[in-house]
Design a protein around this nucleic acid. Structure first.
Lengths: 352, 352
DNA sequence: CTGAAAGCGCTTACAG
DNA sequence: CTGAAAGCGCTTACAG
């Protein structure tokens, strides 16, 4: 037996379980047992193997493990965007939990909602062999969730669980509808005759939950129901919508589909010389980190996106590990944060 | 020969090259040649194989390919953060190029700058077998870049190329020093006696490029050099720093290490009743998407982070593909964007 | 408790 | 131009 055998290893290649086996003088199958925590290994043998692993700096090849075992301890997030606050925060939550569970994290961006483009991205993501989390807040995400082949472990982060787009796949959500109702009621309770709405894009052609909640609250109060304006995702869209609203003296309260939109609306209102909240109240959605520092600071609805991401990963983990305890779909509670941008309508009659 | 052989495939498992080979009546090695675009395959054979691939819906296993070939067409980004504007935009740039090159994208977050924690993250990232991009804008990132074992394909996104932390590894950067000089000169040219600075954290213990550029511009103009204040990354830190500055009537111009910091400073100044830019001018760094919509809109320096990310991936791609054309280190040019938050100092003497 | 065999789905020389 | 063999680094039954 060549006692120096395991020492003359070329420095170029990483040590394999065979190298470890040689060093520990056992078969490589036993090495496999040790690194997998298999119970039936004699303690003294385990020690020797562990020592050899330590000495050689052995690391099990993730790809060989994946190929042989058929599972990969990885999760890839399918999303149309990585920078908007909500998306980024969900991603962050998923990442935190994935790291804790020692899963690797992949990102696949859905650049288009086009059927075949979406299928291509989903296929490639599925090729990794790991689990999938798809953020279905927009048409591309919804299409992706639908395109995931049955049998693959997947959980959706969806806008609304009423007929979730992925069929009976597991999902997590926040109750945006109720959140929008709350925000709208807050504005109405201040004395505004009605509340205008600047909407974010909907994930489907159906009425989005935030829009539905806003409308429900208006209806409940018997307030007029103005047509919602489409704002897109960013401040530019909010600015454009705000410009149109700023011209109408009857407008005294505006709810926005997210804080970025509200930022644009705020700017347009100021440009038009309207005081906030003196003449017009504005509320946003999401409570982005900067919203508390705007002037005026923004009244908004805080949504726990990071928690949502953590829950999504937790659910996925349950699914792939097939542990009996399938976590209940967690619903985080939105919280209204009242700040400086909302207040009672001005005393002077603003209506026509 | 069983002509129905390839049809009775169980629907549970994905087809392998052997299934395709059987269907096309060739050896599986030939299938391998076809999917790898190997030239020496008779056209008619290629046709048959392609048809079989199409019919069976064959997809080459990424993990088997990685194991057998030793390369994985993947990149993982090591970063301390995924949500701050600069980091997120770099990530987005990397993602765009990775997608174009059909590389899969992984993220590994450095939760701490602790030596052993960083090593663990780097090891796990290296286990994927793909290339690495590390964002070395902070101590954790710098430590990670340094911890990457020699021989692995890696590129760093660094703060400054003067003695880059990763030794002679390839890197990309933006010239933050010059950018800070420009911004400071702009403020001085408006007539301010000097410019105060609220800093972002440095990647090392040495003077950060932005701080150095600010100081150089001051020196060049013979202006007093106030001590920089540490602001952290977010608006809360900017707010705290702004509060201290707001109390000093001698302060008429403030440069901030990023736009989030500037947002907090703006807020603190307003709370102290100081007019912007009437009494105090403020400038930021980065040109985040919301900065143009603040009131006042923010004078800032635009940095092409997405371009930086694209360049980083491009360089990495060159490295792993070993194509002779090693891209030159691309340097994007920062651009000063003058908006409403900066202006000449007020006529009334603000000094002691 | 531990080894020898077969296999995961590919690629890479090596023959012909 | 195409096939048969060996191997990538592991895991999974199967024996003993």
């Amino acid at each position: 037996m060549n006692v120096t055998g395991h020492t003359r290893k070329l420095s170029g290649t990483a040590p394999s379980i065979r190298d470890v086996a040689a060093a520990a003088e056992v078969s490589y199958q036993t090495v496999s047992r040790v690194i997998n925590g298999h119970p039936s290994v004699k303690p003294s043998t385990r020690e020797r193997v562990l020592a050899a692993i330590e000495e050689l700096g052995f690391r099990r090849s993730a790809t060989a493990h994946a190929l042989a075992s058929g599972r990969s301890r990885s999760v890839t997030v399918l999303t149309a965007n990585t920078t908007h606050y909500g998306y980024a925060a969900i991603l962050q939550g998923i990442e935190e939990e994935a790291r804790r569970a020692a899963y690797s994290l992949g990102i696949a961006v859905l650049e288009s909602a086009d059927e075949s483009a979406v299928r291509a991205v989903v296929r490639r993501a599925a090729d990794t062999g790991g689990g999938l989390v798809v953020i279905a807040y927009d048409p591309a995400g919804v299409a992706a969730l639908r395109a995931v082949p049955a049998g693959l472990p997947v959980v959706g982060v969806v806008e609304t669980p009423a007929s979730p787009p992925g069929g009976d796949r597991p999902w997590v959500w926040t109750d945006d509808r109720v959140a929008a109702e709350e925000a709208t009621r807050h504005l109405l309770s201040l004395g505004h005759e009605t509340v205008h709405y600047v909407a974010i894009p909907s994930s489907t052609r159906r009425t989005a939950p935030r829009t539905a909640g806003w409308r429900a609250a208006l209806r409940e109060a018997g307030a007029p129901e103005p047509r919602p304006l489409q704002g897109g995702w960013g401040p530019a869209g909010g600015h454009a919508a705000g410009r149109r609203l700023a011209g109408d003296p009857a407008v005294t309260a505006i709810l926005c589909g997210n804080d970025d939109l509200a930022l644009g609306v705020l700017r347009a209102l100021r440009e038009a010389g309207r005081d906030i909240p003196g003449e017009v109240s504005v509320a946003g959605f999401d409570d982005a980190p900067s919203s508390a520092y705007l002037t005026p600071s923004l009244t908004t609805v805080r949504l726990d996106f990071a928690g949502l991401g953590r829950a999504a990963f937790g659910l996925l983990h349950d699914v792939v590990e097939e542990s009996a305890r399938v976590a209940p779909h967690p619903v985080s509670v939105p919280e209204l944060i009242v700040r400086e941008s909302s207040g009672p309508p001005s005393a002077r009659p603003a209506r026509r």
